[in-house]
Nucleic acid binder design. Structure first.
Lengths: 233, 233
DNA sequence: GCGGATAATACTGTATCCATAATTATGAAC
DNA sequence: GTTCATAATTATGGATACAGTATTATCCGC
């Protein structure tokens, strides 16, 4: 999150950024497995670039926590410990709860305040939720998670705190390391859906406190689901 | 914060890390002023290194938000906007409040639970606070801020959530951009001291909720102080 | 046969070099 | 005199080459 980022929408991303994005995708897909060593030269060759932008990209990923740089030893894909999960999720719940709270307040103040299209923001959220219901019914996990992310992002946008969003995104980048595992959870989607309904209901009632609590519990519920999984495997 | 970082304590930091650290110091000291262009070549020459580690260091600082990388335009020191302050401090207050809350709980559970030296952790905090009182009396702003930081770090350590600490540290890295300004605030030290007393009192009473609130207000008070300053200048 | 030491190999980390793009200065035209 | 266009300069971004260190394998000694 840059303090000054009001540059023109053009300005294509630098090569190292593109490389970082491709690496993230591979890590999330577990094509680069947690704990695996990253062969700079091999990957650079594969991408058709030199080691320089590859190394710069790895520095960025290291700052994000997706990889671990061991001096003179090379670069390894990060792996989450149980302790990491125990520490991250409560914080994420705290932050996401605040987002829900702020977003609800914005909805409420938009109700009586401005003259703009009556609660169009809420309609957007409701539409996304409806999509969630559909994908859940179709048992389409990938689409569900995609729309789920869109829902949370829309809420963040509504809350209007870029730094809050920034921190959440940083955390989520790391949590995504378990995305593959999360997708394997049968029943989690239904549970998630129930929780989302509670969030949406609180939003509709403009009950900021309830929205915050519902979101908070929703996040912690996600962590509990991961616990189940790890215990089983 | 690395998921796997249990490497040997040796392994000296890579050159780019050292460079990043030196750059941070210069930025905080406003030797590299907010908004200023960073001349890679000149700085590399000055440090007696090549541009490669310098560029890698800048990538790291960019990830931290301390500098802004404009493609094909170079690197500029970040500058905080009023909006940044308005968005950051409430989040920081939220997180630091949680730290105080958790730390207090740890103190409380250590009281009846374990057999170890009776509330030695609290004594450490009390000792740091006593130092704060001394430096405040001597009007030694630099030392005050140093010990203040130590106090907050000790509290984080006590809270025992590495990710919570990690996020706070990330934010503080950025907030430090205004450190020079904060130091110029006459009267802020006395105010800060009063708030610290409230925090310490809550800790002593093992009142987690009060500690959280006191810390929360303490952080927001810091932001209010910066407001005053900006209005004046 | 096993353990330690040494040498070879391979990868990280740093430096140098080249190309491309952006900015600025200079000159010409209106 | 001002503005626009073009050229030159300068810095960024990327590639390649080199050095240093860690790891591993092999050989010698016990």
């Amino acid at each position: 999150m840059n303090a000054r980022d009001d540059s023109k929408p053009l300005a294509l991303p630098a090569l190292y950024e593109q490389v970082a994005e491709r690496l993230r995708a591979r890590i999330y897909a577990h094509e680069l497995a947690p704990g695996a060593w990253i062969d700079e030269q091999a990957l650079a060759d594969e991408f058709g670039i030199s080691r320089t932008p590859m190394r710069e990209a790895l520095k960025v990923l290291a700052a994000e926590g997706l990889v671990v740089l061991k001096p003179r030893r090379g670069c390894y894909v990060a792996q989450m410990s149980e302790r990491d999960l125990d520490e991250i999720f409560p914080v994420l719940a705290l932050l996401e709860g605040r987002v829900a709270e702020e977003a609800t307040r914005r909805l409420a103040s938009a109700d009586d305040g401005s003259r703009r299209p009556a609660n169009s923001d809420f309609e957007r959220l409701a539409a996304l939720h409806a999509e969630l219901e559909r994908h859940a019914a179709a048992n389409d996990a990938d689409r569900f998670f995609e729309i789920n992310q869109a829902f949370h992002e829309t809420l963040q946008e509504l809350a209007g705190n870029r730094w809050l969003s920034h921190l959440i995104n940083d955390i989520r980048k790391f949590v995504k390391l378990t995305r593959r595992d999360s997708l394997r959870l049968e029943g989690r989607i239904q549970q998630s859906l129930v929780e989302h309904r509670a969030i949406l209901a609180a939003l509709e009632r403009r009950d900021a406190s309830a929205a915050a609590h519902a979101m908070h519990d929703h996040i912690l519920s996600g962590r509990a689901a991961l616990s189940q999984l790890m215990k089983g495997s």
